[in-house]
Design a protein around this nucleic acid. Sequence first.
DNA 1: GTTTCATTGACAATAATTTAACACAAGTTG
DNA 2: CAACTTGTGTTAAATTATTGTCAATGAAAC
Lengths: 213, 213
Amino acid sequence: MDKDISQAVISRLPRYLRYLGELKDKNVERISSSELSVLMKVTASQIRQDLNNFGGFGQQGYGYNVDYLYSEISKILGLEHQYNFIIIGAGNLGKALGGYLNFEKRGFILKGMFDKNPDLIGTEVRDVKVMPMEELPAFIRSNDIDIAVLTIPKEGAVLVAKVLVENGIKAIWNFAHVDLDVPEYVQVENVHLSDSLMKLSYNISSYNENNKQ
Amino acid sequence: MDKDISQAVISRLPRYLRYLGELKDKNVERISSSELSVLMKVTASQIRQDLNNFGGFGQQGYGYNVDYLYSEISKILGLEHQYNFIIIGAGNLGKALGGYLNFEKRGFILKGMFDKNPDLIGTEVRDVKVMPMEELPAFIRSNDIDIAVLTIPKEGAVLVAKVLVENGIKAIWNFAHVDLDVPEYVQVENVHLSDSLMKLSYNISSYNENNKQ
DNA sequence: GTTTCATTGACAATAATTTAACACAAGTTG
DNA sequence: CAACTTGTGTTAAATTATTGTCAATGAAAC
């Protein structure tokens, strides 16, 4: 029954969490919105407003308790759950994501990897074997998989996404350079790397344009 | 002398380019904002407004010429330049980005890779050898490097960024999970993968919250 | 040519987001 | 324990982004 929180706010939460984590590591006990605003280079107002979307975590005259706020934001982001995930596409990108241990710390458990390339099948990332695509549907059904990570070229992505959805996947982290068309109940988070690179390219040119003499 | 274009607009340009590229491949000659709006699931108004930030590329009663619009957006994004880039961090992620051939098609030329791990030094990605970090400063200076891609853990990233900037790098594509503090003339584009994953996590939990019975 | 039709570019209206302002509860100090 | 300070939570204002509308204009039809 939460009222809708804008994606702009959601996008900022992980960054708050990151800074709070660093403060925790430094054994900082409390912090005010204005101190945090200096650290993070945002307005104190925005911090307060963002947090108040989810309830009051601070105390007048005291500020925010770092540990408490950290754990509340974790909860908001759903990081207290465990999620089982699989990776489709065992190329370098798939392997990089599969090998990234910090995901496990956050409760994202790699259960399987899949690829259509016979040379990759049987190879391992950590203790997880790469399986052939034929085994994908059965694997999803019998291993309680929550998230599928798509690290394959765009040509195959649309079809694979269809298979994923048919077999009950509810969330896709999509690195394929194509917009997936899935039912509304399936959550998709796109990471379009070349879009990001083009943005950088724009900012380089635009800076040069505005600063040439 | 361009007036400032908002990052929201810039972020949408690569997506326009992608759809226009697909239309080009299908030999579509012209398209109206309303046709494109259906394809892309945005409003026609937004398309026209976005494009008009940069000038009038269409024609009343005709629409937009696909080839022309494609090339104009390419120019806006600075994709008619060539950029030389290097990758710092030759792990799986670095190798994945280094091996991604589409970047080269867009004018991003991989000139070198660097890592501090002796086991990786000398290995190759395409025809580019991984070099030790000691050679980084001299290499940047003598090879006209525009962009550095940071695919190393956050611990080393801040220091490496400092070295990059000192040696003349003007743009950083940052995959390290930390905010870099660089002079304003250095363009930084962040790709924080775990932030993206947390956003997905939020959307899963939030969907479940709102739809449980 | 002239008329009709399609569709842009411009702008006004609306919506969303961010920043500022401030009342007041909670802490602190002498 | 009274006066003072801090800093949240909240409401209001400002800014920014998105959408809807329409006159102007060029393309197509005849």
